[in-house]
Computed example of a mutant assay.
Amino acid sequence: MNPNISTRLLHAFVALAELKHFTRAAERCHTSQSALSVMIGKLEDMVGARLFERDTRKVTLTPEGELFAEAAGVLLAEIESAFANISEYVALRRGRVSIAALPSLAANGLPSVIAEYKSQHPGVRVSLHDALSDQCLSLLRQGKADLALTAPGPDFIEFETRTLCSDPFYLVCRQDHPLAKKKLVRVADLAGHEVIHLAKSSSVRQHVEVLLKDVHVVHSGFEVEHLATVAGLVKQGLGVSVVPELTLFQFRQLDLVAVPLQSGNPMRPILIVRRKDQPLSLASQAMLELIEKRLGQKAAPRKYRHF
């Protein structure tokens, strides 16, 4: 048997089982007594047993009716719970969002967006993975992240991507460095200067190599994993470095100078990446829209930066 029992029939049954009176049960169900009687008869036909004993004075449940009453109560409770749960998700009072982002974005820019999102949707759980580009994509593939904010690379064909913003590059140096007083630095100005690099696995290093490919700079011998290490080496006069604007917060505490590279030099695009085969939840879509609103504006005009 494959019954097609509607919630209307279940509500009619429960009303009659509780009130044991056709007229009052019909009033609760906002229908006529005759229509209620038809519904109960239809339900009994579907069940294949009488559910009520009826006479002119009272209505009582049969033993089969007693059994069905338990099942009907459970079914209606589960249906109401399912609708309540989905309503919570639709209203963004519940849910989860997981974001993978480059460390520079995860530490600077994204936290304020997450804080604003949490204030608007306190019931939604937000998780953040700070990771290099390859790991961001891996988290997307595994379903551990809904969105990734990362720089372009060779393995993006399987994903849906769009540009969030462009990240211009700056020279970072000591205040007593010959280039520190310039308002703008040309890439050619870096010729002959020692440069401290990030590791080759980083998206920053890959873009810096493109910037410097036609300039004879001196390799300082340092290739490090962390921007804080770059800042410490620059502070000690062991070289200069070229880094994106989004990373400059790492250099503020060391009394260094940041000078923008001349307009026309390539910028590092920051992409929003998501899976093509996985639609976003309403909670994730709301996060995506807020990220685009807060971080997707065109870069502010660049100027000389002195921390």
Rank of each mutant, 00 (worst) to 15 (best):
R141H: 02
Q142F: 05
Q142T: 03
G143T: 00
K144R: 09
A145G: 00
D146R: 03
L147W: 05
L147D: 01
A151V: 09
P152Q: 07
G153H: 10
P154W: 01
D155G: 01
D155H: 09
I157M: 04
I157Y: 07
F159G: 01
F159W: 00
E160R: 08
T161W: 04
T161A: 02
T163S: 04
T163F: 06
L164H: 02
S166P: 02
S166C: 05
P168S: 09
P168D: 09
F169K: 08
F169Y: 09
Y170K: 10
L171Y: 06
V172L: 02
C173W: 02
H177Y: 07
P178R: 01
P178C: 00
L179N: 09
A180K: 03
A180W: 00
A180E: 00
K182D: 04
A188L: 01
A188I: 04
D189K: 09
A191D: 07
H193Y: 15
V195C: 09
I196W: 06
A199P: 03
A199D: 13
S201A: 13
S201W: 13
S203H: 13
H207R: 14
V208L: 03
V210I: 14
V210G: 15
L212I: 03
K213T: 14
K213L: 12
D214N: 15
D214C: 12
D214Y: 14
V215Y: 10
H216I: 12
V217A: 13
V217E: 11
V218W: 08
S220V: 06
G221N: 08
G221W: 00
F222I: 10
E223C: 15
E223S: 15
E225L: 06
E225G: 08
H226D: 08
H226Y: 07
H226W: 12
A228P: 00
A228M: 12
T229Q: 15
V230L: 07
A231H: 03
A231M: 07
G232S: 11
G232I: 03
V234M: 01
V234K: 01
K235M: 07
K235Y: 11
V240Y: 05
V242F: 08
V243C: 09
P244N: 08
P244W: 05
P244Y: 05
E245G: 04
T247L: 10
L248T: 08
F249Y: 10
Q250D: 06
F251Q: 02
R252E: 12
Q253A: 15
L254I: 03
V259N: 00
P260A: 12
G264R: 13
G264N: 04
N265M: 11
P266A: 14
P266D: 10
P266K: 11
R268Y: 01
R268V: 00
